[in-house]
Design a protein around this nucleic acid. Sequence first.
DNA 1: AATGAATGAGCGTTCATTCAT
DNA 2: TATGAATGAACGCTCATTCAT
Lengths: 220, 220, 220, 220
Amino acid sequence: MPENAPGRQKKNMPKRGPYKAGLERQKQILEAAKNLLIDEGYHNFSIRKVAKRVGISPGNLQHHFATRDDLVSAMLDHVISRYLLELEVIKNKASSPKECLISVIEFVTRDLQTRDTTVFFPEIWSLSNHDEYINTLMQQMYKVYRRIYEDIALQINPSLTEQQGRLIALFISATIEGHTMFIGYKKSNNGMCEGVIKMICSTALQIIESGDIPAERAKN
Amino acid sequence: MPENAPGRQKKNMPKRGPYKAGLERQKQILEAAKNLLIDEGYHNFSIRKVAKRVGISPGNLQHHFATRDDLVSAMLDHVISRYLLELEVIKNKASSPKECLISVIEFVTRDLQTRDTTVFFPEIWSLSNHDEYINTLMQQMYKVYRRIYEDIALQINPSLTEQQGRLIALFISATIEGHTMFIGYKKSNNGMCEGVIKMICSTALQIIESGDIPAERAKN
Amino acid sequence: MPENAPGRQKKNMPKRGPYKAGLERQKQILEAAKNLLIDEGYHNFSIRKVAKRVGISPGNLQHHFATRDDLVSAMLDHVISRYLLELEVIKNKASSPKECLISVIEFVTRDLQTRDTTVFFPEIWSLSNHDEYINTLMQQMYKVYRRIYEDIALQINPSLTEQQGRLIALFISATIEGHTMFIGYKKSNNGMCEGVIKMICSTALQIIESGDIPAERAKN
Amino acid sequence: MPENAPGRQKKNMPKRGPYKAGLERQKQILEAAKNLLIDEGYHNFSIRKVAKRVGISPGNLQHHFATRDDLVSAMLDHVISRYLLELEVIKNKASSPKECLISVIEFVTRDLQTRDTTVFFPEIWSLSNHDEYINTLMQQMYKVYRRIYEDIALQINPSLTEQQGRLIALFISATIEGHTMFIGYKKSNNGMCEGVIKMICSTALQIIESGDIPAERAKN
DNA sequence: AATGAATGAGCGTTCATTCAT
DNA sequence: TATGAATGAACGCTCATTCAT
């Protein structure tokens, strides 16, 4: 058993890694798992179904991912890191902070309308409330993601404090995510996407530039 | 067989209703179902667990709610209509449109921090992608909810078109909902709640008053 | 609880009989039970389904027929006695033994092609192997039925012994019944019905008239 | 998952078959299923009971036969093909058509008196009215079986048309089957078996030799 | 790296039956 | 005469997991 796939592993025995063919298999499995999650939802997710999609036996799948939790964790890792990578590319394409802000907002918001994103993220949101590991994973992802907005905000308006930057970044990212259920794939208001984008962009810019952000007090 | 609980029923045969004790039971069941959903998530939801929580046999539960879907639907109905009722009360307490806007935003956003709300709504969001009935239920709820913001917006700024009102309402509601995963119960940024509220309020007012909302074109 | 419906009752408490309306209900129930048996087979038979067909509650049905076995027994009684009555009528219409033989054979064989008969009797045959009460009921019915052939045979050929008459009657009745699965309702050879009838008639007559029947020895 | 046992399968994916031990298990299961059917009847048939008889877990049984229908189908297949094989042997032992006719009739009729046959076939007859797959299976079996009588009849009396041969074969086979409920295992007239055999044989021979069979018209 | 065999628990559901109303 | 409430057992089935091969 390799058990060296990323995820929730406890025991980390120093074993030989998977063969090349094995790595290919793992990717197949993770893709199939992602698609199953999206097609049927987490409440209909099972390793047997994943195995059937890949065309291997459940026993074999469990050779690659020892437990169901391992598989789910690895799959979420897989999808999330790919998503963050995409974001990085978008960010690096822009030549000015403002342009960067707008292109990231546009990319993320338009991406909400793809089936994968419309379905995948709410799945994570609900899961994060019942599984601490998944919650951590998700919060890490959003921290990395919000960092983009924080950096941009401070570049556009250097007079902002770090805390203000964090609050702004939180506000922008939460605002975008919150539209998923309304303008997402097959959602009844998906025609409003472009209008929403404009509102988010102008609001974000206005907040950043005005610097009129409440001072924070909470610690936690 | 009662089967006349709210939910996914189509044919409404003229049957005698349940006894008083039966109605009490139904409420107990719906409460237990809600709590189970919140405690363990939809993927761990089962009628047997609900029955165990109520302290009755699965057979008896199925006497009250014939199928799992019936139970889930009735439970969602139950929770959602109670939530909308609460909103109505908040709305009616306010004496001016602006005050109303602020108090509704404050109520809803603070409510995000209760465990029930933090957990319950993401559950619905994810479910709505896999169950058309639940999606319809959810969209109806949000339509009623957004109607509040639409009315307020048009009262504050009568020059807004209906479409602009709808877009604003969508933006405000989506912005609030989007914070659930970040400032909700036990979420890492839950200390930022008050700051977020201020930003949402000022942003909402600014958008409504400026009337600087993109004209829409998409139909779909 | 009346419990005075025919069937498998053990305790026969001297209670007042059912009201007129109750008797009507009992007939409704028995008819519904018969139709359910025919529509879905004994393995899908349940008192709940019967109750649903009648439009009453299972509890109420069980007020009329205390147990499932009671209901089944009463229903079989009901159908069988009606069937024997029909036969009696056919028999009495004929003016000569030969004519009687032919008309009974024709009636019974053609009746095999009705859906009710095609389905109902195999159901009894299989049940009789697992329920002694039903087996007794069935054997009684066939005894009465075969008696018709016995009488006719002895009338046509008075030189036959009683044993020979019984053997002939058994042979004729078994021959007819055996065609159920082949020329019955929706069965692949149901076009051969008339040919079959002619063969049965001529064979029966030939056996009776020739008297060339093996002497029996077995006792049991 | 083997799922390659005979039965109601459609797609025949090129999977590796079961291990040797697995094949043994499948046979055990089919035997247990047959015996359960005979002991308790189809209405008391359950995969759990079969599993208990074999001494395995229900889950394991479902590994070999994925659904209840698969199991039932495979079991019927199993029993029927064994039965047809036996018949073939009997047929091939005979040296003349007449002898063959008599030995087949004797074998089949006497076999009616074994418990297995007395119980098994009525079970199929009733099931065939509620399950199209089983009806097809049964009709195929009887077609093969009747073919024996058809061939013999045409050998004994070559002047018979094919249609006449089919009608005769139907009549002989139906006549035999029809005696199951009367001379079968523990049935009240089982002492008449030998007399019945003689009547069937002489009747069959007489019909075949005389060629006095009604011309058919119906098509269907 | 892969499959098949096996377990045991849990699921939604149906059911016969009992009983209070 | 009728319904609704309730139980407890059984059903077919899916599942995560383990293990021998």
